[in-house]
Design a protein around this nucleic acid. Structure first.
Lengths: 369, 369
DNA sequence: TTGTACGCGTTATCAT
DNA sequence: ATGATAACGCGTACAA
């Protein structure tokens, strides 16, 4: 019951007496100077083995930990990364959690802590997020922002604080970023349907203010162009990512009540796709026979819908990890080889578009990133 | 395009020249002593209006921000809360995100930053999470741990660091905690089925190492006892929360292939319930006619399954917010009126158990916490 | 090899 | 009403 290490380790509360131990305290006990202790703690090559060991033993016994505030004051570093979130950040799905997980993994590996900060209400600090760097709380920032336009990017650059844009892709060497290949994802989904012979492909989107919508639609249009299919903006219906199933169903309803209804629908999230399938069912349309459906995200349940949903899988963990690695590299003086990186997505073919050989060009699973 | 405030505010980069401004720098320019500036910044009542205004104007213009490291060094506080996560924290669902959201909201309101920290691999710091408090990085901690047993709770208490256990309920005035009422939730789900006349109620659980499983099962057993129905441990099948749908289906399969199969199944998550419904369908069993199903969590898609899933809704945002409020209270010297608080859950009745008046006692929606 | 002394930016306690 | 100065805990150039 004590064996595993997923847990808090016990600790002698030695410091009960005089508060937490400091270098001075240790120096007093070890009968050496403070700086000698400091050197021992920092494993300075100047000190001989024995002195070092002697001091380290005492420090260990006293449960000493360097005060990182004092250290930071001297070094002008906090060894902390800030994750900057928009005021209303949609943490609904598992996406953000996975990104965070990737960030966390890399940051601990390099000894950085992470501070989570979201824009507060307007009454609060209007200097956000620069208050954090100006107050020396963080050394760099990972900016998570789903908006299509990054406002005041210039201010960001001027501040001269290392940052990485997470999940927002822009082609700007001065603005490092890591994002999923939303354009590629949109294209792959559309191509899949086009190859199966579909020509009227409806799209159920999220808000056009978020980049996920505009980029994926852009990819969809690329595919259309490649197949010489004219773009018809009446085939687009905008729902809300936050209310995926409801709005997905509503949008699908509108699409399916058109005079010439689409033979396929590309939904920009699996939840939207779920709504689409539901709406189709209610109209007596069979998926995939009467309507092919493609989703986006490959969330856990999508494999278990009936029929199992063909979808685009992203890699949020890799996004977080890569972004964090880039930031750490910058902070440690290395230059990342790429400033703007795209994390590939992949098409997961299941049953919601029918057998691939049924219509159109037969083909297996070649279209991965 | 500049009007909204969801974004980064622009900032004159005045400090380009001499690094970031400090009290000393401002004092030099204002031709006053450092301590005068300090008083102005901290709005000391000793200073007359005009001096204060004069200094503040300069500070503002120079874009001054107090160095929180230096402040912390003096005040012995970091104004930072730590969120402690287990090594492998299942962030799959939206649950954690919502808890985090609640924490974040309250903490910014009180001027605290939040530091995210998960237990690292065993090679790293074996003092986790006390390294954080000992290094003065955080003033208190919110401990998120899904395990049934909290190991070394004593070490935690001995460390004399303010903490709150999040989503783990224990009856211990010395260990403040905030959690969802899992026992109540289990009971409510089972009662619902019992009222509808079911007597053989299968349970698809998660791992028995996590409290969510044991507590909800405990509640289920309470309901059984209240209805004089003997507990049959063969009606329990353990799946995995992380692989909800798959293991849910597998467990349901085992349950449904029993000689006398259950007439209802209580799944401890909506994903598990989804798997249960799928398994039922594959056996040609109709839900709810042949099998009633209750889920847990009320995730977004559960309202849109066919049939819509009856489930237990938790309130993760409230859990986070309440826990954080308690911690802040402790840090600011207030004593929370309750040390161990239970956040109520509620039964959301949909169609997966059939009409309530169909069998058993008719009743409306009285059983909320 | 080890000690001395100063500075990091701030607050607080003295004076004046 | 304001200034000088000593902490806070640590790192480090310089001395010894």
């Amino acid at each position: 019951m004590r064996g595993t290490q997923d847990e808090i380790v016990s600790t002698p509360a030695v410091f009960e007496e005089h508060g937490r131990p400091t270098l001075k305290e240790i120096a007093r006990i070890a009968r050496v100077n403070i700086s000698t202790v400091s050197r021992a703690i920092n494993d300075s090559p100047l000190l001989p083995r024995d002195t070092k060991d002697m001091i380290l033993a005492i420090a260990e016994k006293m449960n000493y930990f360097p005060n990182s505030l004092a250290r930071g004051l001297v070094s002008q570093k906090s060894e902390t990364l800030g994750i900057i979130l928009p005021k209303i950040f949609f943490l609904q799905g598992p996406f953000f959690s996975q990104v965070l997980s990737g960030i966390e993994r890399i940051s601990v590996k390099h000894g950085f802590s992470i501070l989570i900060a979201s824009a507060t209400s307007k009454t609060a600090d209007r200097h956000f997020p620069f208050n954090l760097t100006r107050a020396r709380r963080i050394d760099g920032m990972l900016i998570i922002n789903e908006n299509r336009r990054i406002r005041n990017l210039n201010a960001l650059k001027q501040e001269r604080v290392p940052f990485v844009l997470v999940n927002r892709f822009i082609e700007d060497t001065n603005a490092p970023c890591v994002a999923a290949d939303d354009i590629g994802g949109g294209r792959m989904a559309a191509e899949h349907l086009l190859r199966l012979g579909h020509r009227r492909i409806g799209v159920v989107t999220g808000s056009h203010r978020v980049a996920a919508t505009t980029d994926r639609v852009a990819g969809y249009r690329q595919a259309l162009t490649a197949f010489d299919v004219p773009f018809d903006k009446n085939l687009l219906e905008a729902g809300l990512f936050q209310q995926g199933v409801e709005t997905g169903a509503r949008c699908a309803d509108r699409l399916l009540s058109r005079a010439t209804r689409p033979t396929a629908i590309f939904a920009l999230s699996d939840e939207l796709a779920m709504g689409v399938m539901q709406a189709a069912k209610e109209r007596g349309l069979r998926v995939p026979e009467d309507l092919a459906v493609v989703g986006y995200d490959n969330v856990t349940f999508s494999a278990h819908l009936s029929p199992p949903l063909t979808t685009i899988a992203q890699n949020p963990y890799a996004i977080g990890a890569t972004a964090c690695q880039m930031l750490v590299d910058m902070l440690e003086g290395r230059t990342p080889d790429q400033a703007n990186v795209l994390i590939p997505v992949r098409l997961v073919v299941r049953d919601s578009c029918g057998s691939q050989s049924a219509q159109g060009t037969a083909q297996q699973e070649g279209e991965d990133a």
